[in-house]
Design a protein around this nucleic acid. Structure first.
Length: 210
DNA sequence: ATGACGATTTACT
DNA sequence: GTAAATCGTCATA
């Protein structure tokens, strides 16, 4: 079977809770200038439900230069900058114009772990300290460091760009493990939306954030 | 023009 | 466990 493993538009055109669940076990792939491939299995995600979701950047229909990508086609990357130093990456989904998305929170590295380790170490004060494999992509900003994802990739069309996309796992891959669910991380300001169970992860996977 | 705030991570007590 | 780091972005004026 030689069909493309890359996710297509229709794969992204679904509501965010279903997409958050569906992305688990699939791969986020980054191809650097020069052709080096970095990839990780998605092990943790969060759904952001758009205008009604107090925790979402698009709550209440807010639309600014920063979150413009959320209003684009499903399959668009929404990469934002926060805390003065970190980037996080979302996959825009649903219908075009409905600003819903899924935050990628953690990956299990499967290609280019050495490059990831270098990039992660470069962001630390003590860049000589040993970094375990579970320190490379176990958080939304960590994985962006490891995969060289920043605002330059905001608005990327994941169905077409050579540099960033989602892939189906190989045939006969590991069996889908148990999926855990919880409240989202870091959204305590969102009142009743803070407690909604909108985070999904592969139970017991050591690359999930803590 | 100004001030407050992060969908986080790291280092330190 | 707690707190510092660090600045783009946005709401208010």
């Amino acid at each position: 079977m030689s069909t493309s493993r890359r996710w297509r538009r229709a794969d992204f055109a679904t509501e965010p809770r279903a997409l958050a669940r569906a992305l688990l076990g699939h791969r986020l792939v980054r191809v650097l200038d020069g052709g080096t491939r970095l990839a990780g299995v998605i092990v943790e995600t969060e759904a952001y439900l758009g205008v009604r979701d107090r925790a979402a950047h698009s709550f209440g229909g807010r639309r600014t230069a920063r979150n413009e990508s959320m209003y684009r086609k499903p399959g668009t990357a929404y990469v934002y900058f926060t805390y003065g130093m970190h980037h996080c990456m979302n996959v825009v989904c649903g219908d075009e114009g409905d600003p819903v998305a899924v935050l990628i929170r953690a990956l299990m590295p499967v290609e280019g772990a050495d490059q990831m380790r270098s990039r992660r170490a470069a962001h630390r004060l003590d860049n000589g300290a040993a970094l375990r494999e579970t320190d490379l992509c176990s958080g939304p900003a960590k994985l962006c460091q490891a995969m060289a994802i920043d605002r330059d990739l905001d608005g990327t069309d994941l169905t077409r760009a050579p540099s960033l996309f989602i892939e189906h796992p190989p045939d006969h891959g590991p069996a889908t493990r148990r999926i855990g669910r919880s409240a989202r991380i870091g959204v305590g300001y969102a009142a009743e939306w803070a407690d909604r169970q909108l985070r999904w992860f592969l139970s017991g996977n050591p690359h999930v954030s803590r």
